[in-house]
């Protein structure tokens, strides 16, 4: 048994939530990028999680990022003939990033991160308490 129980599982979740926050940051940063490396407007990225049996052999389900996919829904077209990315009609495709959606995602990720930290804190308290047996 681990002294601080469940630490592998919680660590994997912290890592997964961290990656999710990175992706949200990337989406927000690119909310107005109309010209990506492939020439088109930026497409928002989406993280999906999957559980996986703990590689350390505890038999618990750890979390990992299964894939960072791309959301291919078309972005809105705005009329801006002065933009170098404008097409013949003067329309520019904006990224399909919705700041509100991203903010909600960011908050969810950060709350989940906090919950996992609370788990670690609790486990540490339990371990400390066990060390006081007989004192």
């Amino acid at each position: 048994m681990n002294l601080i129980s469940g630490v592998n599982v919680t660590a994997s979740a912290l890592n997964a939530e961290n990656i999710r926050m990175d992706v949200v940051a990337e989406n927000i940063a690119n909310a107005y990028t109309t010209h990506g490396p492939d020439g088109g407007a930026y497409k928002r990225k989406v993280v999906t999680f999957e559980s996986m049996l703990d590689p350390a052999g505890s038999g618990k389900s750890t979390v990992q990022v299964s894939q960072i996919g791309t959301d291919n829904t078309p972005g809105s077209m705005i009329f801006d003939p002065s933009s170098p990315d404008a097409n013949k009609q003067g329309m520019v495709e904006m990224p399909n990033v919705n700041i509100s959606t991203e903010m909600v995602d960011l908050m969810t990720a950060s709350r989940a991160y906090e919950a996992n930290l609370a788990v670690i804190r609790n486990a540490r308290q339990m371990a400390t308490k066990a060390l006081t047996i007989g004192h």
Binding site: S5, V9, F49, S51, A112, V119, M126, A130
Partner: peptide, 23 residues
């Protein structure tokens, strides 16, 4: 006490997987 420590691991696993589809 052993069971409680084990239960903590179970809860830790649940919280870790709160966003995992199908968990």
């Amino acid at each position: 006490m052993d069971a409680t420590a084990e239960r903590h691991e179970a809860i830790a696993t649940n919280i870790a997987n709160v966003e995992t589809p199908g968990y």
